[in-house]
């Protein structure tokens, strides 16, 4: 479980902020208004944001600034949204898109 840095020797105290409630894969979480989805989930101890579309292996944030797309999730029905740079909003429904079928690869295993 990770935690928030409430006091910082150089940056000072974390400003009081509004709490928002959102869901990830159907479970309810709280976040600070304005922070990215990935930060809110990490603060709640959630590291796995998706499973690879083909292999199903777990993935979490990697670059955290929008370059790598490893944190892509589905937000209110829109796929491919980067959790690292999308601020959480009250009532937001976040879920992972899940593993996709790979018929060509599966066919090749036995035929190619």
């Amino acid at each position: 479980m990770t935690e928030r840095i409430l006091e910082h020797p150089v940056l000072g105290s974390l400003e009081a902020g509004k709490t928002v409630t959102f869901t990830f894969n159907g479970l309810e979480y709280e976040g600070r208004e304005g922070e990215p989805i990935a930060a809110a989930l990490l603060a709640a101890g959630v590291r796995t944001l998706r499973h690879h579309e083909e292999s199903g292996k777990p993935r979490g944030i990697y670059c955290n600034i929008g370059h790598c797309f490893e944190c892509r999730v589905e937000v209110d029905g829109i796929q491919g949204v980067r959790a690292c740079l999308t601020p959480v909003r009250d009532g937001m429904a976040v879920r992972e898109s899940g593993v996709l079928p790979s018929p060509v690869r599966d066919w090749r295993k036995n035929n190619a």
Partner: peptide, 24 residues
């Protein structure tokens, strides 16, 4: 590729900007 592995810049942004510890 395991969750919990991130670029060093990612840990920096989590810590200083979002004020969430990347881990213990």
């Amino acid at each position: 590729t395991l969750p919990g592995v991130m670029s060093v810049g990612a840990a920096q942004v989590m810590t200083n900007v979002h004020r969430v510890k990347p881990g213990k």
